[in-house]
């Protein structure tokens, strides 16, 4: 399943980003019931988590095709470049949020940010356990 040229659901990294986007939309919708400030705090926290990760992934795969098909001679330089961009973008977005947004629910903002980082653990763990179950099923056949 492809989302235009931007996201390819076959790739594990893009799958994590898609799940993060859906989670942010869902959480924003839920917190809209508690007020507009809560909703946009959750959304901003989520965007600050998703956008740098997305751009870092794009820089990592730029002109080299999907992450899984990277040539074997690239070493660590694309990783370092993408990490620098991710860190710089995160700091810029945090600064912009704290300087430009006057009313912010900081607890929800950081909760959304930290919660979305946990998706980096949860999705690979779920996929690994599903793979293990499938493998165990094949062994018993």
């Amino acid at each position: 399943m492809h989302f235009g040229p931007f996201l390819n659901i076959e790739s594990q990294v893009d799958r994590i980003i898609v799940i993060q986007i859906f989670t942010v939309i869902l959480a924003t919708g839920i917190f809209l019931m508690f007020g507009v400030v809560a909703a946009y705090s959750v959304m901003l926290g989520g965007l600050i988590c998703i956008l740098p990760g997305y751009f870092a992934a794009r820089v990592l795969v730029a002109k080299k095709g999907p992450l899984e098909n990277l040539p074997t001679d690239v070493g660590l330089s694309p990783v370092i470049r993408s990490e620098l961009i991710k860190f710089g973008l995160s700091v810029a977005l945090f600064l912009a949020t704290f300087l430009l947004v006057e009313r912010l629910n900081t607890l929800l903002f950081f909760a959304a940010f930290i919660g979305l980082q946990l998706i980096y653990i949860v999705v690979p763990a779920i996929e690994a356990s599903a793979l293990r179950r499938r493998y165990a099923g094949k062994q018993s056949d």
Binding site: Q12, L67, V74, S90, Y120, P124
Partner: peptide
């Protein structure tokens, strides 16, 4: 290629802590 994907995901996780601190 497989290790690169796993490295990127693990890096994102390790990165999260200092970014939260920042």
């Amino acid at each position: 290629p497989m290790l690169m994907t796993q490295l990127f995901i693990a890096l994102a996780l390790v990165d999260a802590v200092p970014i939260i601190a920042v």
